[in-house]
Amino acid sequence: KLETFPLDVLVNTAAEDLPRGVDPSRKENHLSDEDFKAVFGMTRSAFANLPLWKQQNLKKEKGLF
């Protein structure tokens, strides 16, 4: 399991300012399950079932792209 970080560490943070080991294209993977659901309004599995373009739009909207 990946290390999780608080939302404010990941949202609207440039790649070079992210904690070590965080993939800038997969910031959402480093949210706790609770934060993930609070941000996206759905579970990880529901998010994973969305088309890629919709996932990317949601990530942009939430500052996690």
Rank of each mutant, 00 (worst) to 15 (best):
L18H: 03
A48N: 14
F40L: 02
K60F: 10
G21N: 11
V39I: 09
P19Q: 09
K54T: 13
N57D: 15
A46P: 02
L31T: 02
F5L: 13
G41V: 00
F5N: 14
D17L: 08
E28W: 02
V9G: 07
N29E: 14
R20W: 07
L18R: 03
L7C: 06
L50E: 06
R20C: 10
V9N: 11
V22L: 07
P6V: 01
D33F: 01
E16W: 03
P6A: 10
G21L: 03
E28T: 02
D35S: 04
R44I: 02
T43K: 12
N29S: 08
S45K: 11
S32W: 00
L7T: 09
W53H: 09
R44M: 05
L2H: 12
D8R: 08
A38V: 08
D23F: 00
E3K: 15
N29W: 07
Q55H: 00
K59A: 03
E16A: 10
T13C: 14
A46W: 03
M42R: 03
K62L: 07
W53P: 09
L7H: 10
A15P: 15
G63F: 03
K27V: 15
D17V: 07
S32V: 05
N49Q: 10
L31F: 01
P6Q: 09
D33C: 07
L50Q: 06
K62R: 10
H30Y: 14
F40V: 02
L10Y: 03
K37R: 10
K59M: 03
Q56W: 07
V9M: 15
D17G: 09
A48L: 12
L52G: 13
A38M: 09
L64F: 12
V39R: 03
R26D: 06
G21S: 12
N29V: 09
H30L: 06
K1G: 08
L18W: 05
S32E: 04
P19A: 04
F47S: 01
S25W: 11
L58Q: 02
A48M: 11
N49Y: 06
V22N: 04
P19C: 02
A48S: 10
R26M: 08
F36H: 01
L58S: 01
F47T: 00
F36D: 04
S32G: 06
K62Q: 10
A38N: 07
D33N: 05
N29T: 05
M42Y: 10
A14R: 14
D35H: 05
V11E: 05
E3G: 13
F65E: 15
V39C: 13
K60G: 08
L64C: 04
T43Y: 03
K60T: 08
P6R: 06
D35M: 02
T13Y: 15
A38T: 08
L10G: 07
K27W: 07
V11K: 13
F65D: 14
R26S: 12
N57V: 10
S45T: 12
N49I: 09
G63T: 03
K59G: 00
K62S: 10
P51H: 01
T4H: 11
S32A: 08
S45V: 14
E3S: 14
S45H: 12
